[in-house]
């Protein structure tokens, strides 16, 4: 989000309309370009036992309902996160046997939801969490339209609806604690840390056990890079992942349009006024000639 905003303001400056925002521009420029330096989580699906410990811990940490006893991951049954649960584990039968996959908000480096949000309720923190801020949100659900992973969920049956999604336990991390799912994974399949170091760790695992892993870290480049990183034994398409996700950040898709706005605002009125003056004179001449 920070990056996106900075680039946008830079564009404003370039087109010469930054008069009013000049101060902000200076402030934004002074930030360093270390966009990789934030927290992430490495999830190794080959270690996951599908115990739902993360689901239960997540529900407890955020005051949501834990899964029912009979609501367990099963091959062929697709469970999805919704407004009552931020994360779910699903089972998949693959070419290498049965595997479990945990899904939740991916915490994109440049989140579509945050760039879509017109009130900055969706917000990428310096830590790397993508958080939702209740006091700002107007409930337009444009974040849901924009998110390529369909992560934000909306309370459709409330007069005071909230958006639910994983925020990488922003509040717990601030207090120095680990995210709830990381702390409660008995298989230690979920590892929290600096995203850059986690990528190095993931590469190391792939290099050390080449037979065990498919040689891709899902999330390293998807949607411009995500906070959650996935390791798998099989191609990610077999585990229900969307493999068509573009490698560029999603906010880039609206950048061209947004960049054209200041130029249109400068050029269009001038052109319109010019045409008006030109045609007005013409009409007057016509009248005189007649």
């Amino acid at each position: 989000m920070g990056v996106d905003r900075r680039n946008f303001l830079r564009a404003l400056g370039l087109t010469g309309v930054a008069l009013g925002t000049g101060k902000k521009l200076g402030a934004a420029e002074s930030q360093t370009d270390k966009e990789d330096e934030f927290y992430g989580i490495l999830y190794d699906s080959t270690w996951c036992a599908g115990c739902q410990g993360c689901e239960i811990a997540c529900a407890e940490a955020h005051g949501l309902t834990p899964p029912e006893i009979e609501d367990v991951p099963e091959v062929g049954k697709k469970r999805v996160a919704d407004e009552t649960r931020r994360t779910v584990v699903n089972a998949y039968e693959t070419s290498q046997g049965e595997f479990f996959v945990k899904t939740q908000c991916m915490q994109c480096a440049q989140p579509a939801c945050a760039s879509a949000c017109l009130t900055k309720a969706m917000y990428k923190t310096r830590d790397g969490s993508v958080i939702w801020r209740e006091e700002k949100c107007m409930g337009c659900r444009y974040c849901m339209v924009s998110c390529p992973f369909d992560a934000p969920k909306f309370e459709y049956h409330s007069s005071n609806p909230k958006i639910e999604k994983c925020d990488m336990c922003f509040d717990r991390v601030k207090e120095g604690k680990l995210p709830a799912c990381v702390e409660n994974c008995p298989a230690e399949a979920i590892k929290f840390g600096n995203r850059r170091e986690l990528i190095a760790e993931a590469r190391k695992r792939i290099a050390e056990f080449p037979g065990m892993y498919h040689d891709v870290i899902y999330g390293e480049h998807e949607a411009g890079g995500t906070g959650w990183l996935y390791l798998s034994a099989v191609p990610f398409g077999e585990l229900g992942f969307n493999t068509n996700i573009q490698k560029k950040p999603y906010p880039e898709l609206t950048k061209g349009f947004l960049y054209s706005v200041p130029s249109v605002f400068v050029l269009a009125p001038a052109v319109l006024l010019g045409i008006h003056t030109a045609t007005k004179n013409n009409n007057n001449q016509d009248e005189e000639n007649e």
Partner: peptide
Amino acid sequence: NVINPIIGNSFGVSSVL
């Protein structure tokens, strides 16, 4: 909260909306 993007306490300038 519809006034939020208007009164200026949270300008989401990168949003098309």
